[in-house]
Write a protein that binds this DNA or RNA. Structure first.
Length: 662
RNA sequence: GCCCGCAUAGCUCAGUGGUAGAGCGCUUCCUUGGUAAGGAAGAGGUCAUCGGUUCAAAUCCGAUUGCGGGCUCCA
């Protein structure tokens, strides 16, 4: 057998060898790479094979390999963490015999950790947080012993028999699910651990350099709530202690930005047990920021030909029976209220605004000349999120959508899509977010789960695609991700610490116009069904505010800051002058506060810094005499004294341009 | 809804069966100062709620509520 081992740059012919392993092949080209390698990338007839392979893989004719070394990024980390998950399971089996194994994959780019393994302990025994250090210690012991990861290939029947004997029914179930005659298993030498696993894995435990177990969580087998719940242990691992430390540091940084913590510290919002879970109280500072955002949105919407509407928070259930929500989203609705005078009638808190906007459309006869109609509303909706899923502002039971519904003719659809794209772009830029677009279309062949005729779907998809192309916005096409009622474009923003959040959506809907029987009179004097577009930019004000708080780490830019500048007199002697300055700036429309406490200037500055106020205006002897303020920028520090009017003009410029930095 | 954990002053948190603590914040007084903490005194708690064990419970047990980490769900 002649096997060619190859380096990306230089091809080296390898002489006749028997059973050349990936490791040996790599070693012949590059001893250093072989030393660092944790797995190998396999090529068959020059084409990269789907799955990477173990270093112990025996090369077949026409195959070549490259080393996967720690600097290979996610590809390497994936193998490495998967192997760490196995190490975790081996340690658990060693410490807690009789534990059943679930699955143990690696996770990449996940805040929860780098891997997990699911377990079931015998006789309802449970892991507690105290167990984590013990397990971690055992993992380190196993690392020190440099134990080999071994791959075993066998028939399905053999594997099933093996796991049955081991008392691993869950593994047997997984094997049953797999197609194909042969399956692979992995062991870690010297431990009781055997796993049904595709691989590949690192050659031995000593490759693992830095580990940390993070948390214990409940998780259902195969994510199915009707199946028993298991205990999941989350952990992470890195190629070096430095990388792990860096990750921990970043995690701490994210925790410092937690909107729930900052919401309390900066007095932005709260929840009250007296009111109920997931129902937000906007405090003056938070509500002010929200008003500023709303005003900005108002301007953008008016300019783009939107009309504002207002609709009630409750409605007779009938409305949502017609829309189909009652049937499909019963679980997510607050329970009904019965009419006091007629038991036949029940009311619901509204989970969506669309049927209300449709009623406005239906309130009179519409001509094609009236279209498009663009109804916008900051509509508060109520969804009964299951207890245990609410999460600060990010997941609330009552929230306010920046909702709009566009009713248009088929010809107008592309234009409306373009308008939405332009709006999305303007708004995300104002807040300093970059973003990505995803076009979700229906399944390529399976059409059963969608409603609406093919030609309408094609029209809608074409309108969205044409819009994206005409606007010049790159996008990812997502097959099989469309809603059952139409295709959509979703937007994901990237925040200051590189996390992504889904915010906006533009959805074409064929269902509701049909269900509610809305129509317009066309130029042909016939009745036609309008096309309806749902669109939200921020999604919900509550969630968007939470994201903004974390994005800015609580330090809002001037145009959003609840207090834009605080006047700090050096001593009581200058309080009077300070009040004058405060009054003058307030009269000019700025949001200004004053600190007349009998504290030293250092303390006043410190407090203003902690409140993240953009500007501090210090007034002492010199400034009082000269009619100036000594300006201290929160970020840049002391930037010198200028006349009050000049500061006012500068602040106005920053505010009006919605500058993100000073 | 489910699994695990947590609940002590406005906030952050000590307190392992025997009369409730700290720092910050708050109030008052002193201090009147030049770019991230001046000093002193004081107020503030049915230890989430309900029940149980005990001579005695913040502390042990059970339930409830809320919060946190996950699972699941997300029109």
């Amino acid at each position: 057998m002649c096997v060619k081992a190859q380096h990306p740059e230089r091809e080296i012919a390898v002489s006749e060898v028997q059973s050349l392993t990936a490791f040996e092949a790599i070693k012949q080209q590059d001893r250093e790479a072989a030393k660092k390698a944790i797995a190998a990338r396999l090529f068959r007839s020059g084409i990269k094979h789907d799955e990477p392979v173990d270093l112990s893989y025996v090369l077949q004719e026409g195959e070549r390999v490259e080393a996967i070394t720690p600097d290979a990024g996610d590809e390497a980390l994936d193998v490495y963490r998967h192997s760490t998950a196995h190490l975790l399971a081996a340690a658990v089996l060693d410490l807690y015999p009789g534990t059943q194994l679930g699955i143990g994959p690696s996770l990449l780019g996940d805040a929860k950790g780098g891997f997990y393994y699911d377990f079931v302990r015998p006789e309802n025994a449970r892991f507690t947080p105290d167990d984590l250090p013990k397990i971690e210690k055992k993992m380190r012991d196993l690392i020190k012993r440099n134990l080999e990861y071994k791959r075993l290939e066998m028939t399905k029947a053999e594997a099933a028999g093996k796991f049955k004997a081991l008392g691993e029914p869950l593994k047997c179930e997984l094997i049953e699910d797999k197609a194909g005659a042969t399956v692979s298993c992995y062991t870690i030498e010297g431990t009781p651990f055997v796993d049904f696993c595709l691989g590949p894995h690192i050659p031995s435990t000593s490759k693992i350099k830095a580990i940390k177990l993070l948390s214990i969580a409940g998780a259902h087998w195969k994510g199915d709530e009707s199946r028993p719940q298991m205990q999941r242990i989350y952990g992470t691992s890195f190629f070096s202690q430095e990388d792990l430390d860096e990750w921990i540091k970043q995690k701490e940084e994210a925790e410092k930005r937690d909107h729930r913590r900052l919401g309390t510290e900066l007095d932005l919002f709260s929840f009250s047990d007296a009111i109920g879970p997931g129902l937000v109280l906007w405090h003056p500072n938070g509500a002010l920021i929200r008003k500023v955002i709303e005003q900005y949105l108002n301007d953008e919407l008016y300019r783009r030909g939107y009309s504002f509407v207002n609709t009630p928070h409750v409605t007779q259930s009938e409305l949502f029976r017609i829309s189909g929500h009652l049937e499909n989203y019963q679980e997510g609705l607050y329970p009904p209220m019965t009419d006091k005078e007629n038991e036949q009638i029940e009311y619901r808190m509204k989970p969506m605004n669309c049927p209300f906007h449709i009623q406005i459309f239906k309130a009179r006869q519409r001509s094609y000349r009236d279209l498009p109609q663009r109804y916008a509303e900051y509509g508060m909706v109520y969804r009964y999120e299951r207890s245990g899923v609410t999460h600060g502002l990010m997941r609330a039971r009552g929230f306010t959508q920046d909702d709009a519904h566009l009713f248009c003719t088929p010809d107008q659809l592309v234009g409306e899509v373009l308008g939405c794209l332009d709006l999305v772009d303007a708004i995300f830029k104002a807040f300093g977010f970059t973003y990505k677009a995803e076009l979700s279309v229906r399944h390529a062949t399976d059409r059963n789960k969608y409603i609406g005729a093919d030609d309408v779907w094609e029209l809608a998809e074409k309108a969205l695609t044409d819009g994206l192309n005409e606007y010049g916005l790159p996008y990812v096409r997502m097959e099989d991700e469309a809603a059952f009622y139409g295709p959509k474009i979703d937007f994901k923003v990237v925040d200051a610490i590189k996390r992504t959040w889904q915010l906006s959506t533009i959805q074409v809907d064929f269902t509701l116009p049909q269900r509610f029987g809305i129509e317009y009179i066309g130029a042909d004097n016939a009745r036609h069904q309008p096309i309806m577009v749902h669109r939200a930019i921020l999604g919900s004000f509550e969630r968007f505010f939470g994201i903004l708080i974390e994005h800015y780490a609580g330090a809002f830019p001037v145009w959003l800051a609840p207090v834009q500048a605080v006047v700090l007199p050096i001593s009581d002697r200058f309080n009077e002058r300070a009040v004058q300055i405060e009054t003058e700036l307030k009269a000019a429309g700025h949001r200004v506060a004053i600190d007349t406490r009998s504290e030293k200037i250092g303390a006043k500055i410190r407090d203003a810094q902690l409140k993240k106020i953009p500007f501090m205006l210090i007034v002492g002897e010199k400034e009082a005499e000269a009619g100036t303020v000594a300006v201290r920028d929160k970020v840049k520090g002391d930037i010198g004294a200028i006349p009050v009017a000049e500061f006012s003009a500068q602040l106005k410029a920053l505010n009006d341009s919605r500058a993100l930095t000073t």
